[in-house]
Nucleic acid binder design. Sequence first.
RNA 1: GGUGGGGUGACCGAGUGGCUAAUGGUAGCAGACUGUAAAUCUGCCGGGCUUACGCCCUACGAAGGUUCGAAUCCUUCCCCCACCA
Length: 381
Amino acid sequence: MSQFHVHATHGPARAGTLRLPHGEVKTPAFMPVGTHGAVRGLHPDEVRRAGAEIILGNTYHLHLRPGEEVVRALGGLHRFIGWSRPLLTDSGGFQVFSLESLRKIEEEGVEFRSHIDGVLHHLTPESVMEIQWALGADVAMAFDHVVPGQADHGLAREGMERTLRWLARCRGRHQELRSASESESGDRQTLWPIIQGGTHPDLRRASADGTLNQGPWTGIAIGGLSVGEEKPVMHRVLEDLIPVLPTDVPRYLMGVGFPDDLLEGIARGVDLFDCVAATRNGRHGSAWTSVGKLNLRAAAHRTSDEPLDPGCDCETCRQFSRAYLRHLFVAEEMLGLRLVSIHNIRFLIRLAEQARATLLEGRFDRWRADWLRRYHERGES
RNA sequence: GGUGGGGUGACCGAGUGGCUAAUGGUAGCAGACUGUAAAUCUGCCGGGCUUACGCCCUACGAAGGUUCGAAUCCUUCCCCCACCA
């Protein structure tokens, strides 16, 4: 079961609702990343209270530990990690990019030298589907070949074409898995493809064509962005690509982003985002605010009684001062990492909620322009 | 009082004639982070001048001396620690 309804549009931007087996996701939406089955540092209740309606897990990392069979034996990922809302698992395609020095790509699949113990692991489009099926997330992602943002036409084409060939294999195996368990739970998971093609317009179009030809799909992801290319380049790719995508399925911009990226993406027709920056930067003491980002370790906050952001309704801002948060970072108390992570994910989720509200009210463009102007005023991003 | 050890930049602590404004840490300051090998990483960290290359001061307890050249060697003094009386 996966359905998407669009309630309002404003140019390419839209507000919608995605129905998945474990619940609804109101879009636009930001999905916190929980690589190992946990949004780093946070209790699932905290993630839920921050307004998250869906979070991610990672195929590569959960395969290495604890292993998908452990998760399956313990009732699937939702039960295992204490998250009853929708879940999406990334395929390990990003690790093809981020663990470049530890892997070898072949047509059959990718050989990874485990970053933990050096053991060799082989991921193929088929095995990635099996792992994700065992994990049992609402949405499984196709296994893709991500190339760096600077990739030339040749390399980008290679990654894009391989992603299309792998997509056919992913789809084939996923359908087998679904039909094998149709009576009980065949409807429990849907597969989304990923468009690649780097920064090259012709390759992006070709990827879109090739992907749509293999459909229909219940959602379509755009991968291989914010991997080193300039922001205007990413915007151009979105402007180029999204008009050729069907309007009746959600578009998921993978790995993005920062607050301004969300608004720029939504304006160009993106419905879903995920990004580690909220939690990673939070752990590193960097908090987003409506007037740019701030570094909590900075001496400027030593005696500040202000919350991180005066307009924020997160559990951190409702209770704690910048001075206290700075103190926690200086003293290396783990609470600081958690509190700023909570703030950052709430900040992005709330931004998406506000985008949705203004879309439904028909005033998105104006709101977005004002918001971005204020955010960039101090000259930071 | 005697004997031995020691006093280095905010702190700890290397260095025992030139490559030393002085290794390393810590603290401090600033920055980065985009489908998580990250509670990580990078830069600055005596003062002044310069866009910059660089230049000039001050500095290894104090003062004096040896030397072309001293944190490093010598003399005296001050202070700290240990043991002995």
